[in-house]
Amino acid sequence: MIVGLVAYFVVVGLDKADKIASTIGVVLAALALGGPYLLPPQKNGNAPAPTMVVEGSGSATATGGGRANTGVQHRGDDSGAQVRSSGDARADGPGSNANTGVQRLN
Protein backbone atom coordinates (compact mmCIF):
# COMPACT_ATOMS: atom_id res chain seq x y z
CA MET A 1 0.00 0.00 0.00
CA ILE A 2 2.80 2.42 0.91
CA VAL A 3 4.66 1.56 -2.30
CA GLY A 4 1.52 2.34 -4.28
CA LEU A 5 1.12 5.66 -2.48
CA VAL A 6 4.74 6.62 -3.20
CA ALA A 7 4.32 5.61 -6.85
CA TYR A 8 1.18 7.74 -7.09
CA PHE A 9 2.97 10.76 -5.63
CA VAL A 10 5.84 10.32 -8.12
CA VAL A 11 3.38 10.18 -11.04
CA VAL A 12 1.36 13.26 -10.01
CA GLY A 13 4.43 15.36 -9.17
CA LEU A 14 5.95 16.74 -5.99
CA ASP A 15 3.78 19.87 -5.79
CA LYS A 16 0.47 18.01 -5.93
CA ALA A 17 1.84 15.21 -3.73
CA ASP A 18 2.82 17.79 -1.09
CA LYS A 19 -0.69 19.28 -1.10
CA ILE A 20 -2.34 15.88 -0.82
CA ALA A 21 -0.03 14.82 2.03
CA SER A 22 -0.73 18.07 3.88
CA THR A 23 -4.47 17.59 3.50
CA ILE A 24 -4.25 14.00 4.76
CA GLY A 25 -2.18 15.19 7.75
CA VAL A 26 -4.73 17.87 8.67
CA VAL A 27 -7.62 15.40 8.46
CA LEU A 28 -5.79 12.84 10.61
CA ALA A 29 -4.84 15.50 13.17
CA ALA A 30 -8.46 16.69 13.39
CA LEU A 31 -9.67 13.11 13.87
CA ALA A 32 -7.07 12.49 16.57
CA LEU A 33 -8.10 15.62 18.47
CA GLY A 34 -11.84 15.07 18.09
CA GLY A 35 -11.87 11.29 18.53
CA PRO A 36 -12.16 11.22 22.33
CA TYR A 37 -15.18 13.55 22.15
CA LEU A 38 -16.91 11.61 19.35
CA LEU A 39 -16.36 8.05 20.59
CA PRO A 40 -18.33 6.56 23.50
CA PRO A 41 -16.41 6.34 26.79
CA GLN A 42 -14.83 3.02 27.69
CA LYS A 43 -16.43 1.05 30.48
CA ASN A 44 -14.19 -0.54 33.06
CA GLY A 45 -11.14 0.47 31.04
CA ASN A 46 -9.55 2.31 33.91
CA ALA A 47 -11.80 1.29 36.73
CA PRO A 48 -10.41 2.24 40.13
CA ALA A 49 -9.42 -0.54 42.47
CA PRO A 50 -12.15 -1.52 44.92
CA THR A 51 -11.96 0.24 48.26
CA MET A 52 -13.34 -2.75 50.18
CA VAL A 53 -12.18 -6.32 49.57
CA VAL A 54 -13.32 -9.49 51.35
CA GLU A 55 -11.55 -12.74 50.56
CA GLY A 56 -12.23 -16.23 51.88
CA SER A 57 -15.20 -15.31 54.05
CA GLY A 58 -17.03 -17.99 56.00
CA SER A 59 -20.66 -19.02 55.90
CA ALA A 60 -23.50 -16.73 57.02
CA THR A 61 -26.66 -18.17 58.56
CA ALA A 62 -29.59 -16.09 59.77
CA THR A 63 -32.69 -17.56 61.46
CA GLY A 64 -35.89 -16.24 62.94
CA GLY A 65 -35.73 -12.79 61.34
CA GLY A 66 -32.06 -12.22 62.15
CA ARG A 67 -29.26 -10.89 60.01
CA ALA A 68 -25.86 -12.44 59.28
CA ASN A 69 -23.07 -10.95 57.19
CA THR A 70 -19.56 -12.16 56.33
CA GLY A 71 -19.17 -9.99 53.23
CA VAL A 72 -19.24 -6.25 52.62
CA GLN A 73 -22.17 -4.14 53.78
CA HIS A 74 -22.24 -0.40 53.15
CA ARG A 75 -24.44 2.52 52.26
CA GLY A 76 -24.48 4.14 48.82
CA ASP A 77 -22.96 2.93 45.60
CA ASP A 78 -20.04 5.31 45.12
CA SER A 79 -17.33 3.04 46.47
CA GLY A 80 -16.10 -0.16 44.92
CA ALA A 81 -16.42 -3.45 46.73
CA GLN A 82 -15.24 -6.91 45.79
CA VAL A 83 -15.75 -10.33 47.38
CA ARG A 84 -13.66 -13.35 46.37
CA SER A 85 -14.28 -16.95 47.43
CA SER A 86 -17.20 -16.21 49.72
CA GLY A 87 -18.88 -18.83 51.89
CA ASP A 88 -22.47 -20.03 51.76
CA ALA A 89 -25.38 -17.80 52.79
CA ARG A 90 -28.47 -19.31 54.43
CA ALA A 91 -31.51 -17.41 55.64
CA ASP A 92 -34.20 -19.42 57.43
CA GLY A 93 -37.50 -17.86 58.43
CA PRO A 94 -39.45 -14.71 57.60
CA GLY A 95 -37.40 -11.51 57.63
CA SER A 96 -34.07 -13.34 57.81
CA ASN A 97 -31.16 -11.95 55.81
CA ALA A 98 -27.83 -13.71 55.22
CA ASN A 99 -25.05 -12.20 53.11
CA THR A 100 -21.56 -13.37 52.15
CA GLY A 101 -21.17 -10.97 49.20
CA VAL A 102 -21.69 -7.25 48.66
CA GLN A 103 -24.82 -5.78 50.21
CA ARG A 104 -25.63 -2.13 49.54
CA LEU A 105 -27.92 -0.50 52.04
CA ASN A 106 -30.26 2.37 51.21
Results as ranks from 00 to 15, higher is better:
residue 15 D to G: 11
residue 5 L to S: 12
residue 72 V to A: 13
residue 63 T to F: 08
residue 9 F to T: 08
residue 93 G to N: 06
residue 34 G to F: 15
residue 15 D to H: 14
residue 11 V to N: 08
residue 69 N to I: 02
residue 73 Q to L: 10
residue 40 P to D: 01
residue 40 P to S: 06
residue 75 R to Q: 13
residue 24 I to M: 03
residue 86 S to M: 06
residue 89 A to M: 02
residue 49 A to V: 13
residue 39 L to G: 10
residue 76 G to Y: 00
residue 64 G to C: 12
residue 26 V to W: 15
residue 34 G to M: 12
residue 4 G to N: 11
residue 89 A to E: 04
residue 7 A to G: 05
residue 52 M to K: 05
residue 18 D to C: 12
residue 83 V to E: 00
residue 73 Q to W: 10
residue 60 A to V: 03
residue 30 A to N: 05
residue 44 N to T: 10
residue 87 G to K: 00
residue 93 G to W: 05
residue 37 Y to E: 01
residue 20 I to F: 10
residue 91 A to Q: 01
residue 16 K to P: 11
residue 87 G to T: 04
residue 12 V to A: 01
residue 13 G to T: 01
residue 100 T to H: 00
residue 2 I to V: 13
residue 66 G to A: 04
residue 2 I to P: 02
residue 90 R to P: 10
residue 55 E to M: 09
residue 71 G to N: 01
residue 36 P to F: 00
residue 98 A to D: 09
residue 46 N to S: 15
residue 14 L to M: 13
residue 85 S to A: 13
residue 68 A to G: 04
residue 49 A to R: 07
residue 57 S to H: 03
residue 25 G to S: 08
residue 61 T to L: 09
residue 26 V to F: 13
residue 57 S to M: 02
residue 17 A to M: 08
residue 8 Y to W: 11
residue 42 Q to R: 14
residue 23 T to E: 11
residue 34 G to C: 12
residue 66 G to K: 00
residue 15 D to C: 07
residue 82 Q to N: 06
residue 23 T to M: 15
residue 57 S to P: 05
residue 104 R to T: 08
residue 20 I to T: 13
residue 7 A to H: 05
residue 94 P to N: 09
residue 99 N to K: 04
residue 3 V to F: 09
residue 78 D to K: 05
residue 39 L to C: 13
residue 81 A to I: 03
residue 30 A to E: 05
residue 92 D to Q: 03
residue 11 V to Q: 11
residue 40 P to L: 06
residue 84 R to A: 13
residue 13 G to F: 00
residue 75 R to I: 15
residue 62 A to Q: 01
residue 79 S to T: 11
residue 67 R to F: 10
residue 84 R to T: 12
residue 29 A to E: 14
residue 11 V to I: 09
residue 76 G to A: 05
residue 50 P to Y: 00
residue 48 P to N: 05
residue 26 V to C: 08
residue 87 G to A: 03
residue 49 A to P: 07
residue 51 T to Y: 09
residue 68 A to M: 02
residue 88 D to L: 13
residue 78 D to T: 12
residue 101 G to P: 02
residue 47 A to C: 12
residue 37 Y to I: 04
residue 25 G to Y: 06
residue 21 A to L: 08
residue 72 V to D: 04
residue 9 F to P: 01
residue 31 L to W: 14
residue 65 G to W: 01
residue 52 M to H: 06
residue 2 I to E: 10
residue 40 P to N: 04
residue 33 L to K: 03
residue 86 S to W: 04
residue 75 R to Y: 11
residue 57 S to I: 02
residue 15 D to A: 14
residue 16 K to E: 14
